[in-house]
Design a protein around this nucleic acid. Sequence first.
DNA 1: CATTCACCTGACAACGTTGTCCAGGGCCTA
DNA 2: TAGGCCCTGGACAACGTTGTCAGGTGAATG
Lengths: 345, 345
Amino acid sequence: MAETARHHEPRYGIRPTMKDVAARAGVGLKTVSRVVNGEAGVTPDTERRVMEAIDALGFRRNDSARVLRKGRTASIGLVLEDLADPFYGPLSRAVEEVARAHGALLINGSSAEDADREQELVLAFCARRVDGLIVIPAGGDHRYLEPEIKAGVATVFVDRPAGRIDADAVLSDSFGGAREGVAHLVAHGHRRIGFIGDQPRIHTATERLRGYRAAMADAGLAVADEWVALGSTEPERVREAAEAMLSGPEPVTAVFAGNNRVTVTVVRVLAGREHPVALVGFDDIELADLLGITVISQDSATLGRTAAERLFRRLDGVDEAPSTVVLPTTLIARGSGEIRPPAAS
Amino acid sequence: MAETARHHEPRYGIRPTMKDVAARAGVGLKTVSRVVNGEAGVTPDTERRVMEAIDALGFRRNDSARVLRKGRTASIGLVLEDLADPFYGPLSRAVEEVARAHGALLINGSSAEDADREQELVLAFCARRVDGLIVIPAGGDHRYLEPEIKAGVATVFVDRPAGRIDADAVLSDSFGGAREGVAHLVAHGHRRIGFIGDQPRIHTATERLRGYRAAMADAGLAVADEWVALGSTEPERVREAAEAMLSGPEPVTAVFAGNNRVTVTVVRVLAGREHPVALVGFDDIELADLLGITVISQDSATLGRTAAERLFRRLDGVDEAPSTVVLPTTLIARGSGEIRPPAAS
DNA sequence: CATTCACCTGACAACGTTGTCCAGGGCCTA
DNA sequence: TAGGCCCTGGACAACGTTGTCAGGTGAATG
């Protein structure tokens, strides 16, 4: 009643500010600021009065104003493909833990493997003035990030390298891992081995394919065109690809799956077949041990942690040339890799 | 050189502001603002000049200043237990999608099932002035949120209800789901059924236990003390609990697992035993179909989406009393539920 | 008792943006 | 040709906080 339309826009609630706290405590604005920030130079008695006013009013510092004044937001942005993918959950969590240890919050965004959406997210994060960015790139050209990086936004790419700019990257050894996995199949006597991977514009997909080809070449084995299928990881597409290479004139006796999503679909296809077919998959999968699936394991949490640590080292002022870290993968052998129909009753 | 220490604190990069853009384009500050926000009332020619200056300088609007001025941040906070848990990934992603549709960004935080950490995260989000909060509560007392809610922070609880305050909640039917799952085991002839669940301070754990007891009572079955184990979901603890109830004087012939983490450990225990033991688990699990695990499925993405939609309805000004939505669960029967040793070769 | 000094405290400006409001100029109409 | 209107553009204040700096009080010291 008494207070009519003090504000230009409708507000759902009025928040007390330091000014209000100061008025109530009968002190100056700056004194409140000092108390809130735990700065020295405030009498215990004054501090108590301020604290009481803060509690009474339910005051909470407005970080937007603080950021505006101080320049740093104590937050970092993480752009990944899909938070719902079990590969990215642990990665994101690991990044969060490192951020937390440095007093920073994490803003997440899923690009859905779309380059435009990736850029949109990254730029939105930059507008929020995140201190740093961790990006699992969907697109292949990151020159749009140059002004941001120049302006001081530390940036680390994960899982896949940046496109057309020089930046830090933390990768898994896709090439070596795939090569080892395929060699494992060769060692178990397989000669006709298929490869089903993600879309060719994705760096890890082509690297793993390269590893596959290298392993086959190492063993002196030719690769038939029908044995290689790159494309979307939609179950339907993967199923078709798997069935095609299992039923051609030269059917494969083993399949190398390029990532976790491919693996789960291939497992289902193989489980429905009469004759056992071997499988090695890139990325570990929950319960894979029980199904006897051999995998090339990459620890996504370590990937995330490594990237985040690098990011914060940069934010702490370490100034060195951008570099790429490649983390090793681990082959986890589970049986000879044959997938059979389950023992469901 | 010419410009020495213009700023008080070291900055890693100087960002151009609207003022800089205005100077370069030879227009007023407000005109730049108009162009940036797509407001009407700017000549095409002027607009072009401004755009050029923006590109040349690499200007990016500072959202902190914008927020300070406008009052709303177009961001929401999500506090969950652990982003790495496959139950929460899809939930978070679903929330993100709804937020995106409303032009908002998502800030994530994992409470690690710790009440203090939950509060810390929530208050940090409030200091950032998120427009809304979605909370999967770890603690049991949320009165600390009252001033925030009064100040206009829309809040929705998910998966578990709020403690000691009246707030919106979106839950799964833990009681009904568990009851149905246990009834399924009873229908398959089981009389001695064990229950392994999460810690008793977690609402869903006790609700599911209640469902278990109800189903047993429905069937006129007594429940031995040794058949019920609530506690941490650490694999070791679950393994011990499972083995205890499988080897007592009255060993169970079936186990109801209270959530996905319990289920995966129990599956491993059961797979190692000679005699098949039946299992029904709360939450679906990847590849559960191949292992023949019957589950009570709750769609975590729907949970997240429902909560987010409710949140944004509130932000859009819908003013109704807080209410609780309970989403149904689905029993997915896979065989009779017996877990046998895998057919690993 | 006067003076110095240390320690508290508060006034003020600035961070970058947007809302308000006013001025100037071009164009249309009488 | 003059009057008036509309359209465009800019000056200014305010959002809530923090850094700077100056003032003021009390105690300690000569």
